[in-house]
Design a protein around this nucleic acid. Structure first.
Length: 424
RNA sequence: GGAGAAAUGGCAGAGCGGUCGAAUGCGGCGGUCUUGAAAACCGUUAUUCUGUAUCCACGGAAUCGGGGGUUCGAAUCCCUCUUUCUCCGCCA
């Protein structure tokens, strides 16, 4: 959520920046500005009346003390009219406030100045490429065949237990999953991230704090009776730890990480390219989250990017890093890097991480602020997060790229975690 | 799930419906003293919105778990929700 201050002071700048995201903001901005102006006008009036009201009330208090009952009664008379006026005026504010909130949440975050304009995936900017694309024989199998061949992940069983998109990991498949989680967490710990195990269901306030609510409730599973949402990513609970929190500047950056299962309804998005592990309703992910000082948040982002890159290259996967263009970026993000790994048998790139700086967009909703030592004023912190990493597509690429007649070779860094070096 | 009690500033803990943003203690910050430190003493110590000023500053409104109500006036009374504690029941 953009701050009202920015909207008041930089209307034209916002319009220009949001063009990069192909978003026409003028109409909404003008509506907000006029709503805000009338809200403040009314607020100022009611504040004045309320001040008068408070003054009279105090007067009544001291009159009563002095035993001047008649004068107190006279003063009371004066308040009735005033009270009515205040009531009428303050009731006017309620719908204005609601509308203001409705409008302001429609505005996406401003893209960072390095973000290129564009409409879709084709306009993303490749910033780096690494690893070697494997040359596989014609007979190479896609991962959905490999998992059947070695009986390590069972989709049909998942359908029986729950439904499509809820795979069952078995034997070495389950072990590989657990190995990857532990590997990612250990690497994260080495990089200074504090491990968190959060709840995987959150309340409405948390959903709003990170921007899933309103509007995107269709993407989350909802437990009706208790009004809880299954998290689509650990970003939601881990970032919401800092909802309504005022941090000290010297505690920044806060570096947290969490492994959680993630749940996505992905309503309407099933179709091409979603076979096997490519898109699931439940999957595992390790997420890194930072709360950073606004002056240093882009340094934080770069550190996160190189951390994620390190993970992928330690696993020996061919990868590329993309800086998303305005049209492909999320509503809440100011700058996003996507990481894709090459899937040898599908012969295509699979997104395995999205690492973003949200600047103060989330923290304004979260009311996540910090205070500089000795200063009175609070400022909004910057929030960042990134997948480090999402597992299913990593598994898909590992299986496909490392297959041979003898079986599937486990990357050396994982062997201490799996306890085996081949799936066969 | 049943019965009862409670929720106040960073923490602890007062608070009769009137001058209470809130005593007191601890902690934090600044200062005096000291060669330095401790102790002692003095001062200071929340957040949000807002008006003039737009660097410092001054004024107003709101906030004592959340929401609503009674009242000229609510931390204090009423309703409701949430959370915590104690006892009973159930339970990995």
């Amino acid at each position: 959520m953009l701050t009202l201050n920015l909207i008041r002071e930089k209307r034209d700048f916002i319009i220009e920046r949001l063009k990069i995201k192909n978003f026409n903001a003028a109409e909404i901005l003008d509506k907000i500005i006029s709503l805000d102006a009338s809200r403040r006008e009314i607020q100022t009036k009611t504040d004045l009346m309320q001040a008068e009201m408070n003054r009279i009330s105090k007067e009544i208090g001291s009159l009563m003390k002095d035993g001047k009952k008649n004068e107190a009664e006279e003063a009371k008379e004066k308040t009735y009219k005033l009270k009515d006026k205040i009531k009428i005026l303050s009731e006017k504010i309620v719908p204005i406030d609601t509308e203001l909130k409705n409008e302001i949440v429609k505005l996406p975050n401003l893209p960072h100045e390095s973000v290129a304009p564009g409409h879709g995936a084709d306009d993303n900017v490749k910033v780096k490429e690494g690893g070697k694309i494997p040359v596989l024989p014609e007979s190479a199998l896609p991962h959905w065949d490999l998992i059947k061949k070695y009986d390590i992940i069972d989709f049909d069983l998942g359908i029986k237990l729950t439904g499509a998109g809820f795979p069952v990991y078995k034997g070495k498949g389950a072990k590989l999953e657990r190995a990857l989680i532990n590997f990612f967490l250990d690497e994260g710990a080495k990089a200074g991230y504090l491990e968190i195990m959060p709840p995987i269901m959150v309340n409405e306030d948390s959903g709003f704090g990170t921007g899933q609510l309103p509007d995107k409730e269709g993407q989350m599973y909802h437990a009706d009776i208790d009004n809880f949402y299954l998290i689509p990513t650990a970003e939601v609970p881990v970032t919401n730890i800092y909802r309504d929190v005022i941090l000290n500047a010297e505690d920044l950056p806060v570096k947290n990480m969490a492994y959680t299962p993630c749940f996505r309804r992905e309503a309407g998005s099933w179709g091409a390219h979603v076979r096997g592990l490519n898109r699931l309703h439940q999957f595992d992910k390790v997420e890194i989250v930072r709360i950073a000082h606004p002056d240093h948040s882009y340094e934080s982002l770069e550190e996160m990017v190189s951390h994620v890159e390190g993970l992928i290259s330690k696993l020996g996967l061919p990868y590329r890093i993309l800086r998303l263009c305005g049209g492909d970026m999320s509503f809440t993000s100011a700058l996003t890097y996507d990481f894709e790994v090459w899937s040898g048998a599908q012969k295509r790139w699979l997104e395995v991480s999205s690492t973003s700086n949200f600047e103060s967009f989330q923290s304004n909703r979260l009311k996540c602020r910090f205070k500089e030592k000795g200063e009175k004023q609070t400022r909004l912190a910057h929030t960042l997060n990134g997948s480090a990493l999402a597992l299913p597509r990593i598994v898909a690429a590992l299986l496909e790229n490392n297959q041979s007649e003898a079986g599937i070779k486990i990357p050396a860094v994982l062997v201490p975690y799996t306890g085996f070096d081949m799936i066969n």
